[in-house]
Computed example of a mutant assay.
Amino acid sequence: MRDEPVRQRLLSEATRLFAEQGFESTSVQEIVVAAGVTKGAMYHYFDSKDDLLHEIYARVLRMQMDRLTQIADGPGTVAERLFRAAADVVATTTENLDDSKIFFRSMHLLAPQTQKTVRAERRRYHERFRDLVAEGQREGVFRDDIPADIVVDYFFGSVHHLGTWYRADGPLTGAQVGEHFAELLLASLRPG
Rank of each mutant, 00 (worst) to 15 (best):
N96D: 02
Q64G: 10
I56A: 06
Q21M: 03
I102H: 08
Q113P: 06
A91C: 05
F46Q: 02
L10T: 10
S100Y: 04
Q8E: 14
M42D: 00
M42T: 00
H44L: 12
V33C: 09
M63S: 15
L11E: 05
N96T: 01
Q29G: 13
G76K: 08
F23P: 02
Y43K: 01
I31H: 11
F46D: 01
K39Y: 07
G76F: 09
L10D: 04
L109Q: 14
M42Q: 08
A87G: 12
Y45H: 15
R16S: 15
T77L: 05
L82C: 07
V28D: 09
V33H: 12
Y45Q: 04
A19W: 09
Q70E: 15
L10A: 11
A72G: 11
L109Y: 09
L10I: 15
D51Y: 01
R9M: 11
A34I: 10
F83H: 15
E4G: 08
K49H: 07
A41D: 07
V6E: 11
L97E: 02
A34N: 08
R59A: 04
L52Q: 14
G74F: 11
M65K: 09
K101W: 03
A91K: 01
G40Y: 02
S12T: 13
V32L: 04
R9P: 15
Q21N: 12
K49R: 14
H44Y: 13
L97A: 03
Y43V: 04
E24P: 00
Q70A: 15
F104V: 03
D3S: 10
E20Y: 14
D98K: 06
K101L: 06
D99P: 00
P75L: 08
R105P: 04
G40N: 03
F103L: 03
A35N: 06
M1V: 08
M42G: 02
Q70I: 12
G74I: 11
T38G: 15
E55H: 14
T93W: 03
T94E: 01
A87N: 05
M1P: 11
F103Y: 14
R105Y: 06
G36I: 04
L97N: 05
Q64D: 05
D88W: 02
S25M: 11
L109I: 00
P112R: 01
T92I: 03
Q8A: 14
A34G: 10
R7F: 07
D99K: 06
E20F: 14
S48E: 06
Q29E: 14
G36F: 07
D98Y: 02
Q21V: 01
Y43P: 05
P112I: 04
I56V: 14
D47R: 09
F18V: 11
R9C: 13
V90R: 01
R67C: 01
D51V: 06
V6S: 15
D50L: 13
G40F: 01
E24M: 08
R62Q: 05
E55C: 12
